[in-house]
C-alpha cells in the first residue's frame, strides 16, 4: 500500500463512520448543521493526528502491559488542549459542541487507530493515517450535517435558501439516526460499485 492509498482510504473504502462505524456518538450528536459537523471533525482530526504522532514516536519505549493507559493519558492531554484552545478562541463553537469535545477522549476511533495502527507502523505512515482517517471522519460529519441542515432548516453553512421551517424532524434526534442510516446505505452501494 503506498502512502496515497494510505491517505485516501479514510474517505471511502475504510471511512471511519460509514464503513468502520467507529465514534458514532459525536456523529449523531453534533451534526445539526454542517458547520458544527466540520468543527467537531477538525477537533477530532487534530487529536487523532497528534496522538498517532506521539504514539508512534514512543512506541518502543512503553512496556506492552501499560500501553493502553499511556495511550489514554496522551489522548486525554490533547483533548484537554483542544478544550482550552477552543474556549479561548472559538467560544461559540465550543458551547455548541458542548459535551462532545471532552468525549473525544472516549471516541473509539482515536484509541483504535493508536492501538491498531500507530503502535505498529513507522512515523510517516502513522501521521498520514491519522490525517487521512481524521479528514475522512470530518467528511462524514460535514456531509451528515449538511444533509440534516438542508432538509431540516432549509439552509447550508448557515445560509438560508428557504425561509421558515424545513422538515424539522431532521434537525431533531430521530433525523440523526434516519439520515445516517440512509447515508450508510448509499455509501454501501457506492463502495460495491467501485
Amino acid at each position: 500500500m503506498n502512502q496515497w492509498q494510505n491517505f485516501t482510504k479514510g474517505f471511502i473504502k475504510d471511512n471511519p463512520v460509514f464503513v468502520l462505524m467507529l465514534g458514532l456518538c459525536p456523529v449523531l450528536g453534533v451534526t445539526t448543521s454542517a458547520i458544527n459537523g466540520l468543527g467537531m471533525g477538525l477537533a477530532t482530526t487534530f487529536v487523532l493526528l497528534m496522538s498517532n504522532t506521539v504514539v508512534t514516536l514512543i512506541k518502543s519505549l512503553i512496556p506492552v502491559k501499560v500501553r493502553i493507559p499511556s495511550f489514554i493519558v496522551i489522548i486525554a492531554s490533547f483533548v484537554t488542549i483542544v478544550e482550552l484552545v477552543m474556549q479561548a478562541f472559538l467560544p461559540t463553537l465550543f458551547e455548541q459542541l458542548g459535551l462532545f469535545i471532552p468525549l473525544i477522549v472516549v471516541n473509539c476511533l482515536v484509541l483504535g487507530r493508536a492501538e491498531a495502527f500507530a503502535s505498529k507502523n513507522d512515523f510517516i505512515s502513522s501521521v498520514i493515517d491519522g490525517l487521512g482517517m481524521g479528514l475522512g471522519f470530518t467528511f462524514a460529519l460535514t456531509l451528515l450535517g449538511a444533509v440534516r441542515e438542508i432538509l431540516g432548516s432549509g439552509a447550508i453553512f448557515g445560509w438560508e435558501f428557504v425561509t421558515g421551517d424545513g422538515m424539522l424532524v431532521f434537525v431533531l434526534a430521530p433525523g440523526a439516526f434516519i439520515g445516517l442510516g440512509y447515508l450508510i446505505a448509499i455509501m454501501n452501494k457506492f463502495n460495491k460499485a467501485s
Binding site: 434526534a173 430521530p174 433525523g175 439516526f177 434516519i178 442510516g181 440512509y182 450508510i184 446505505a185
Partner: peptide, 13 residues
C-alpha cells in the same frame, strides 16, 4: 446497519 438506524430513528421519534 442502515435499517437498524432507521428503526432507531423511529424509536427516538
Amino acid at each position: 446497519v442502515p435499517i437498524a438506524f432507521v428503526a432507531a430513528g423511529i424509536l427516538a421519534l
